[in-house]
Simulated scan of single mutants.
Amino acid sequence: MVALFVEIIGWAGAILVLIAYVGVSTGRLSGGSATFQWLNAVGAAFFILNTWWHDAFPSMVLNIIWAVVGFSTLWRIFRRRMSPS
Rank of each mutant, 00 (worst) to 15 (best):
R79N: 06
S72Y: 12
L29I: 09
G31L: 10
M1E: 05
I64N: 09
I9N: 11
N40Y: 05
N40L: 07
W66Q: 08
A44F: 03
F57W: 11
R80L: 10
A14F: 14
V6C: 00
D55W: 04
T35A: 01
F47W: 05
W66P: 01
I9G: 10
V6D: 02
V17Y: 13
E7C: 11
F47G: 08
M60Q: 05
F36Y: 15
I9D: 10
G10C: 05
L62K: 07
V2R: 04
V42P: 04
G13L: 13
S30M: 06
M82A: 13
I64T: 00
F47S: 13
G31H: 02
A44W: 01
R81T: 12
E7P: 04
V17M: 15
A3F: 05
E7G: 08
S85F: 07
N50M: 03
W66T: 01
I19M: 12
T51Y: 07
R81K: 11
A20M: 07
V69D: 07
N63S: 03
A56E: 13
S83E: 15
V2A: 07
F78Y: 14
I77Y: 06
T51Q: 10
M82L: 09
T51V: 06
L74I: 15
W66K: 05
V42I: 13
I48E: 08
A45P: 04
A14Y: 12
R76V: 15
I9M: 14
L39W: 11
A56Y: 10
L18W: 13
V17T: 09
R28P: 00
V6H: 00
P84G: 12
I9H: 08
V68A: 08
L62H: 09
I64V: 10
I15P: 05
D55N: 03
A41S: 10
I64F: 13
L18H: 12
S72C: 11
V2G: 03
A34M: 07
V69S: 01
L16I: 10
G23W: 07
M1Q: 06
W53F: 06
R81M: 05
T51E: 07
L16M: 15
V24I: 14
S25W: 01
V17H: 11
V61R: 02
Y21Q: 03
A45R: 01
G32A: 11
T35N: 01
G23T: 03
A44Y: 03
L16H: 14
V22P: 10
I64E: 14
I19A: 13
A44V: 03
T51K: 03
R81G: 07
A12M: 13
S30E: 10
G27A: 09
L62S: 14
